[in-house]
């Protein structure tokens, strides 16, 4: 898990925007993939899941950062997990109170936010080393980047899989929905396609569209595949 920002860096907008796109947790760091694929069969679910994750991420990072001088090094991971689990339990009950329908759709995946590696990763790599304000801003950026990625996936899957966006009919009714997009394989394929597209534009920008040897791909995929 890379620690992107320097420890003593001054407070800039970069802390916020890095998470949004340049170090997007899903497309660049490949963290927290399980909810990314599991709940993105519609925009509504993606948005709810994203916002729930933002809440947990911001709150837990704020607390971790505030307590960073009091947490003994040896038990820090356990402490982080318990802090995260507390906030997830909160979110779980909040969503249940707001919309039982949504709660049933997201199912166990709200509780599974606990084991979202993105949140623990940020707590360990950023919040435990940086000041309260910076941690909150960075967490907000990362969380919104995560939400953005979820919505990008959910948008494509709902559009192709049901011909709708946020429940509104986009294509005419005689459009034959690609049911596979809503089903599990669609999640993998849409995420794979987004990654291909992003890789393509990245490489066109840097002018590196020349074939490299296969060995370098593998090392890249291993170091990024977390």
């Amino acid at each position: 898990m890379a620690n992107p920002t320097k420890k003593e860096a001054p407070f800039t907008m970069d802390i916020f925007t890095a998470g949004l796109w340049k170090e997007n947790p899903v497309f660049v760091m490949m963290l927290g993939l399980c909810p990314v694929l599991a709940v993105t069969n519609s925009v509504e679910n993606s948005l709810a899941m994203g916002l729930a994750s933002v809440f947990v991420l911001v709150c837990s990072n704020a607390l971790v950062s505030a307590l960073r001088d009091f947490i003994p090094k040896q038990v820090r991971i356990t402490t982080y997990i318990i802090i995260i689990a507390t906030f997830v339990t909160l979110v779980d009950y909040i969503i249940q109170a707001i919309s039982l329908d949504l709660y049933n759709k997201l199912g166990a995946f709200i509780q599974l936010i606990v084991v979202n590696c993105l949140i623990l990763g940020r707590a360990e790599a950023y919040a435990s080393k940086n000041s309260f304000g910076k941690s909150v801003i960075s967490a907000l950026g990362m969380g919104l980047g995560f939400t953005l990625a979820l919505v990008m996936l959910g948008g494509v899957r709902e559009l192709l899989g049901a011909g709708q966006l946020l429940g509104y009919q986009v294509f005419s009714l005689d459009f034959e929905p690609w049911v596979v997009m809503i089903l599990p394989p669609g999640g993998f394929i849409v995420l794979g396609s987004w990654l291909l597209l992003i890789n393509y534009f990245e490489q066109r920008k840097t002018g590196k569209l020349i074939a490299e040897d296969a060995a370098s791909h593998c090392t890249v995929s291993q170091s990024r595949g977390l």
């Binding site: 794979g192 990654l195 890789n199 569209l209 074939a211 791909h217 995929s221 595949g225």
Partner: peptide, 20 residues
């Protein structure tokens, strides 16, 4: 690993397609 892949399939993109 033994095949010659286009450059843009680096990182996890291809793994995702395979998983799909």
């Amino acid at each position: 690993e033994l095949s010659n892949l286009p450059n843009i399939t680096q990182a996890a993109a291809l793994s995702m397609m395979l998983a799909g």
